[in-house]
């Protein structure tokens, strides 16, 4: 399967296979007017399978969102067909309004206008806890 190369834009690479759509939605790529390609299950030497997203325009990405979803992702910036930059993502120390606290006893459950803030409390285990009630964020 061939996807055209891009002249000016971004290649978000090394996305864990299956997480491409989550990232697409979290970065609101569906709102963009330019071409966006989400390629799933690409063969990879390092990862076995991976997802890749290509964006046909250089846009500002929320690196905190990327880092929170998967800190192993890389972002390549392409200008005039050449790669001019490669960013390695770090696990963000804090994420704001990316995930929501699900603890029904948390103050955010009744005060809707409070920002949902999570702090990184264990880098190795990638543990995030709600700033207010300290409940651990879990995907399920």
């Amino acid at each position: 399967m061939n996807i055209d190369g891009i002249t000016n834009g971004l290649v978000i690479d090394h996305i864990e296979a299956g997480k491409g759509m989550e990232l697409y939605n979290a970065l609101h790529l569906g709102d963009l007017k330019c071409s966006v390609a989400l390629i799933k299950n690409v063969n990879s030497h390092k990862m076995g399978k991976k997802d890749i997203i290509k964006v046909d325009e250089v846009i500002d990405l929320d690196l905190n969102v990327l880092g929170f979803i998967d800190p192993n992702i890389t972002v390549n910036t392409i200008k005039n067909n050449e790669r001019i930059g490669k960013s390695h993502i770090e696990l963000p120390k804090e994420v704001k309004n990316i995930i929501k606290c699900r603890n029904p006893r948390c103050i955010t459950s009744t005060e809707q206008e409070l920002p949902h803030i999570f702090k990184l409390t264990d880098e190795q285990k990638r543990t995030y806890r709600c700033l207010y009630c300290e409940t651990k964020y879990s995907q399920n």
Partner: peptide, 9 residues
């Protein structure tokens, strides 16, 4: 306060 985190707010 009955809600967790209210005093922090």
């Amino acid at each position: 306060h009955p809600k967790e985190g209210a005093p922090l707010v």
